[in-house]
């Protein structure tokens, strides 16, 4: 019987959590209409998610391309198809690895920072202070980040993919001897408009999903029954990163199933 109670309680908590998160995101989008002086805060959010995270995107992008080039070359060489290296690298990056890895990197840097910042603002009564001033806290704190994610995640994904192509060319052509022209023409032939569409739709969806989860966790860090104060902020930040990473992979499967 205790097992049933436990299972029932967990299920109810999950349903409540999904409902509460959906309500939070809906409130944020509704607050968009009433938000004032948004541009400056969107620019600041673009800086947080874009400029600040660019180095990590570049580094991870180039090494992903290098590894894909290396592994792809050795697999394809078994079948004497080294000429398809550009196809393998480009389609892997555009359709799957680019959007997913870029999103995971952005969650690790911008998402965790957002959850921690909102958690501290909740702890120090800054969010309640906004409410007492008559300022819509969702509109002020969450809306600019969500709008910025719609722009930044696809852009960062594009950067990741392009740098990954270059990494693949570096390991495939420069180090392993695949003809550079063959590599780049395979890339050009392989990537179609539909693939680009899939890539950007995924990137935008991952952006909204991960930033809203991180914002939700930070915003409600005071609801943690298991921890208080600084510990609650750390728990919320961890949850933000874990939940959004898992849900990005779940969403990746769902979106991919529509395109395959």
């Amino acid at each position: 019987m205790p097992m049933f109670y436990w299972f029932g309680r967990q299920t109810l908590q999950l349903i409540f959590g999904i409902g509460d998160y959906s309500l939070f995101t809906a409130k944020a989008f509704c607050a968009l209409a009433k938000s004032r002086r948004l541009v400056r805060r969107i620019v600041s959010a673009v800086h947080e998610q874009g400029t600040v995270c660019l180095p990590v995107i570049l580094i991870v992008g180039v090494f992903t391309g290098l590894v894909l080039g290396l592994q792809g070359y050795h697999v394809l060489s078994r079948f004497g198809s080294q000429g398809l290296l550009g196809t393998l690298v480009s389609l892997s990056l555009v359709r799957e690895m680019g959007p997913v890895l870029a999103a995971l990197m952005l969650i690790g840097q911008a998402g965790s920072a957002l959850a921690a910042e909102l958690g501290i603002q909740r702890n120090t009564e800054q969010i309640v202070a906004l409410e007492t001033m008559g300022v819509n806290s969702h509109g002020y704190l969450v809306v600019p980040r969500l709008l910025a994610s719609l722009l930044v995640f696809p852009l960062q994904t594009a950067v990741f993919v392009v740098v990954g192509f270059w990494g693949g060319s570096l390991s495939g052509s420069l180090l392993l001897g695949v003809d550079s022209g063959v590599y780049w023409s395979a890339v050009q032939r392989a990537v179609e408009v539909q693939d680009m569409k899939e890539c950007f739709i995924k990137a935008a969806a991952f952006g909204i999903l991960s930033i809203s989860i991180c914002a939700y966790q930070g915003f409600h860090s005071d609801r943690n029954a298991s921890a208080m104060g600084a510990r609650a902020v750390s728990v919320s930040t961890t949850r933000a990163v874990v939940f959004s990473s898992i849900l990005v992979l779940v969403a990746d499967y769902i979106i991919s199933s529509f395109f395959v």
Binding site: T124, Q126, V128, A129, T132, M133, G134
Partner: peptide, 13 residues
């Protein structure tokens, strides 16, 4: 809220 202000113990700046 338009006509009232609240000064927090922690200042909440």
């Amino acid at each position: 809220r338009r006509r009232c202000s609240f000064l927090f113990q922690s200042n909440a700046l």
